[in-house]
Amino acid sequence: MTVTRLVGALLLAVALSGCGSKFKTYNGPEVTQVLVLKEERKMFLLHGRKALKEYDIKLGFTPEGHKAQQGDGRTPEGLYFIDRRNPESKFHLSIGINYPNNRDIEVARAAGINPGGDIFIHGGPQKGSKVNGSDDWTWGCIAVEDHEIEDIYAMVKDGTPILIQP
């Protein structure tokens, strides 16, 4: 093999090694807010008032109403913040929402219930997983397609506000 061919083969191998990675980069306008419209099953990544991206979403298996307690299948409503990311999520990738916030904890404590937690925006179910047969299948999270969470994971930074509306 000639040196030129060897160098070409190595460059091709390096270029292809990045293909298929779930970790993308983003160099566009900053996402200043995430807006979720539960009834419309839509999520928008916003820069100011301009929508940078729009996604169809799936919600908790009991989507109406604000999440009140662990296991209720509801997706929270209100203003929250992206507070963590999980590159090893069993749902491809995920970014965390700071539910329950102090108000959620106070309300749950007064009612004598556990508010639950671990609310994320994440990819789809694992291959071969059974979901409940409904369009809304999570335990209270917001689900998108795997290729979409890859973009969201790259675009949305920790500390970004997320407004979840009924």
Rank of each mutant, 00 (worst) to 15 (best):
M1E: 05
V3Y: 08
T4I: 12
T4K: 11
R5E: 14
L6M: 10
L6V: 15
L6F: 13
V7L: 14
A13L: 11
S17I: 14
S21C: 12
S21H: 03
K22C: 11
F23A: 09
K24L: 15
K24V: 11
T25L: 03
T25A: 07
T25I: 11
Y26F: 07
Y26E: 01
Y26W: 08
Y26P: 00
N27M: 12
G28C: 01
G28L: 05
G28D: 05
P29H: 03
V31W: 03
T32W: 07
V36C: 00
V36H: 01
K38L: 08
E39W: 00
F44D: 00
L45W: 00
L46M: 09
H47W: 12
H47E: 14
H47P: 04
A51M: 13
A51H: 11
A51V: 10
K53D: 15
E54D: 06
Y55E: 09
Y55L: 14
Y55P: 03
K58Q: 09
K58I: 05
L59H: 02
L59F: 11
G60M: 04
G60K: 11
T62Y: 05
G65N: 10
A68V: 10
Q69H: 07
Q69V: 02
T75P: 06
E77Y: 07
L79S: 02
Y80C: 01
I82T: 09
R84W: 06
R85Y: 14
R85Q: 13
R85G: 09
N86F: 07
P87Q: 10
E88F: 08
E88H: 09
K90M: 11
I95P: 00
I97D: 00
I97A: 06
Y99L: 10
Y99G: 02
Y99I: 11
P100M: 04
R103I: 15
D104R: 02
I105D: 06
E106L: 07
A108V: 06
A110V: 07
A110P: 08
A110S: 12
A111I: 04
A111P: 02
I113C: 06
D118Q: 06
D118M: 11
I121M: 09
H122Q: 14
G123A: 12
G124I: 02
P125I: 10
P125H: 07
G128H: 08
N132D: 04
T138Y: 08
T138K: 02
C141M: 05
C141F: 03
A143N: 07
E145H: 09
E145N: 14
E145L: 03
E145V: 05
D146C: 10
D146W: 10
H147M: 11
I149H: 02
E150W: 00
D151A: 04
I152Q: 01
Y153E: 01
A154G: 11
A154N: 02
M155L: 14
V156W: 00
K157L: 11
D158H: 05
G159Y: 01
G159E: 03
P161S: 13
P161Q: 10
I162A: 03
I162P: 01
P166W: 01
P166A: 15
